[in-house]
Amino acid sequence: MSWKLWSLKKSPWVFHVNTGACNNCDIEVVNCLTPKFDVERFGIKLVGTPRHADALLVTGVVTRQAAPRLIRAYQQTPKPCVVFAIGACACNLGIFRKGYHVVGPVDKILREVDPNAIIAYVPGCPPKPEAMISGVIKALGAI
């Protein structure tokens, strides 16, 4: 294991990108930081810019307007990084798959710019905070 991957596994800092979600996954992401779940005790911290982040939390279908912004946020994140597709919409578009303004799930958009992107999926509408924490831990364990 390279030292980069080793350091990624300890205390991942995450950046949250909403690419067209209904706010539901977003409030559950923020919920993870508040006293009941408190992920900061595991060293998981929400940061203000993708340049400081080890992982991207992407919520929501990727809309036509949001796709270039998502790609830009991904390119600014130092590699190696893990992308978490949170919620049914981010995993496979869910109920919005017929929408005319929806260009694709997160993995399709990111694999176009980086075929080797590491993407973890947390399904659910919205996934419970427990599911998100477990998803993060499982994904980091699999690296």
Binding site: G20, T63, G99, Y100, V102
Partner: peptide, 9 residues
């Protein structure tokens, strides 16, 4: 940025 076309779906 969040427009999903819900009325049409």
């Amino acid at each position: 940025y969040n427009h999903r076309g819900i009325e049409e779906i």
